[in-house]
Design a protein around this nucleic acid. Structure first.
Length: 592
RNA sequence: UGGGGUGUAGCCAAGUUGGCAAGGCAACGGGUUUUGGUCCCGUCAUUCGUGGGUUCGAGUCCUACCACCCCAGCCA
């Protein structure tokens, strides 16, 4: 990966600007340390890719480090299936956390020790109010809350209760540990937030060792500091939580000043002092999460699509998940380029899907080898071509990159062309094949249509043509102008293939904004997936490896399916995206 | 008693000591082309949410408004 910014003159995003200032002022002794902190409760999607590129990108740009940390503080939602997929996706995107793979659950004992410290400091208490009561006592957005009757329990009582919670001696929901801050705080996050709750649940890593689990706000900042993270980057919806992030860390650092609080546990104080993160603490910065037109990017909605069977799993090529994009044929390079181009800012925004496609096409145009494949075959017999003759044409795999080499494509008397490339009554701007017209067969010959054969329903079933032997290779000495060039396959040599055409999953730009009585699933497009089973492709594709990217000339970019394609067996190709199609654009304009 | 944020072109987004509105995508013209692809050239903000003010000069400073987003989980 290049360390050179693509456009050096482009202004840095606000996070990098902040880091520049920190570096200038000597903060963190010049260290830059970030982390990507997914909760292992779902698959990663392209919104996560933005965060991954930011966090790992910042570390790369400043010769710092970026940790992979699984934020697993809620055992009922999390599973190892997700940690495996997350690791695979981050790696596939091209990032490396080296030996810094962590879990919040690695720090459970540490969190617990901090909680006891807070109790000793009089900064936390066990509350026996029910969940409903806590909500009532919290007040509203505009009205202050009121103190819990348990708020002023003594340190010893709190300690004993908290230890009972930990020891499993209480039922789920019986009580919680709360931070003692301010029930009248204008920021609701600060109204004595819950920091520990009781859950007798099996954790994917710690098993049944714990019956209490810390809340995000308590665990996250402590994890950051524990790992020596300097810049903790998250999305906008956590802006309000920053006050609590700061409170927890500042309270801990305040506590570190009083050695008497550590009388029972002096080595804990030493441990804290030895960690840079508890001396120069991390700070949180928030950026706007990614939205893209024509798709949904919320975990809840993505799960719903999978569970209700609207798509064929997390890696369905229509899904905006990393695994879905991968299977669709997106490259990591194109996704990284996209993340670079959209920028990082604080304004809520929705990026047009066209930008993602543009990044994709730019990358694939450079690297995808070209092949010939016919989606909807129309038989063509070349009447003056010798019965048993087979021509072999050597065709370049890439028109602008000779180093990619070439392949040989056989040609014979009976070929297939694309049905859309023939019109019996062509309009003015159509310059493909029609009765009496001459076109070029790519890298082969010029052919002229002499006859159209139809079945009893009037359906065109076959074309008769003649070819000009003087145009071998697809070029004529006499300088004859040929407007159209068609792709083709030799009937005798072609391989059958299944091609899956994918379009936008939704019919509207913003499926999230559903009308009265509808939800986003009501906007799923019936045309999002179309399976073509009668396709014919050139023989070179028979041995293609799953996951290979290529272009069917004049049709689009494709990818051999990761699951269903077998070299030498069933050929299955996914359409990653179409080529830019000015003919389609002209057709649209003509309809108007 | 509400608090926290954000408004620059159709979509992203630079713009940081006030000095004459980057770039990308899209769109639209034109050229090249054995892919209606690619590539190349050109057009696309007299104005920065709105109104006042300060100043020789304001997207940048002051002020008053407006719009949108987030927050009342024992989710993250």
């Amino acid at each position: 990966m290049s360390n050179q910014p693509e456009t050096p003159e482009k202004g840095k995003d606000f996070i990098r600007q902040t880091i520049d200032k920190d570096l200038e002022s000597g903060a963190y002794d010049g260290r830059v340390h970030t982390r990507f902190p997914p909760e292992p409760n779902g698959y990663l999607h392209i919104g996560h890719a933005k965060s991954i590129c930011l966090n790992f990108g910042v570390a790369r740009d400043y010769q710092g480090e970026c940790n992979l940390r699984f934020d697993d503080t809620n055992p009922v939602k999390e599973d190892t299936e997700y940690v495996d997929s997350i690791k695979e996706d981050v790696t596939w995107l091209g990032f490396d956390w080296e030996d810094r793979q962590f879990f919040a659950s690695d720090y459970y004992q540490f969190f617990y020790d901090v909680a006891e410290l807070f109790i000793r400091m009089g900064k936390a208490y066990v509350d026996h109010l029910s969940a409903d009561e806590i909500r009532e006592y919290r007040g509203t957005l505009k009205a202050p809350g009121k103190n819990s009757p348990y708020r002023d329990r003594g340190v010893e009582e709190n300690l004993e209760l908290f230890r009972t919670m930990k020891g499993g001696g209480m039922k789920d929901g019986e009580c919680v540990l709360r931070a003692k801050i301010d029930m009248a705080a204008p920021n609701i996050v600060l109204r004595d937030p819950t920091i520990y709750r009781i859950k007798h649940a099996h954790h994917h890593r710690t098993g049944d060792a714990w019956s209490i689990y810390p809340m995000y706000d308590f665990a996250h900042c402590l994890s950051d500091a524990h790992e020596g993270v300097t810049h903790s980057i998250c999305t906008l919806e956590f802006e309000n939580n920053r006050a609590l992030y700061d409170w927890v860390l500042d309270t801990l650092m305040e506590g570190m000043k009083d050695a008497s609080l550590f009388a029972e546990n002096p080595e804990f104080l030493e441990f804290l002092k030895s960690k840079p993160g508890f001396n120069a603490r991390p700070h949180q910065y928030e950026f706007a999460r990614l939205n893209i037109t024509g798709t949904v990017l919320s975990k809840r909605k993505l799960i719903q699509l999978v569970q209700e069977g609207h798509v064929d799993g997390w890696d369905d090529p229509r899904m905006p998940t990393i695994s879905g994009l991968r299977r669709r044929g997106y490259t990591p390079e194109s996704i990284r380029d996209f993340c670079d181009r959209i920028g990082v800012a604080k304004a809520d925004s929705t990026v047009e899907h066209a930008l993602l496609e543009s990044c994709l096409r730019q990358d694939l145009n450079e690297r995808a080898p070209r092949y010939l494949g016919v989606m909807n075959p129309l038989k063509v017999v070349i009447e003056n071509y010798p019965e048993d003759q087979v021509d072999e044409f050597e065709m370049p795999l890439h028109p602008e990159d000779e180093s990619m080499g070439s392949r040989v494509v056989p040609f014979s008397k009976v070929i297939y062309i694309e049905r859309d490339d023939f019109m019996e009554e062509p309009p003015k701007k159509f310059f493909r094949l029609g009765p009496g017209r001459e076109v070029r067969l790519r890298f082969a010959y010029y052919v002229t249509c002499t006859d159209v054969i139809k079945d009893e329903n009037g359906e065109i079933v076959e074309l008769r043509c003649t070819y000009d032997p003087e145009t071998r290779g697809g070029w004529s000495k006499d300088g004859r102008k040929i407007k159209g060039t068609l792709h083709w396959v030799s009937a005798e040599h072609a391989a059958p293939a299944e091609v899956r055409l994918y379009n936008s999953l939704f019919t509207v730009d913003n499926p999230n904004a559903a009308e009265e009585g509808k939800t986003f699933v009501d906007y799923i497009s019936p045309e999002s997936k179309e399976v073509l089973t009668e396709c014919l492709v050139e023989p070179a594709l028979k041995e293609m490896k799953p996951g290979t990217h290529f272009q069917f000339e004049r049709t689009g970019y494709f990818c051999a399916d990761l699951r269903d394609h077998t070299p030498g067996g069933t050929l299955v190709f996914n359409r990653t995206t179409t080529l830019r199609d000015t003919w389609a654009k002209i057709q649209k304009q003509m309809k108007k």
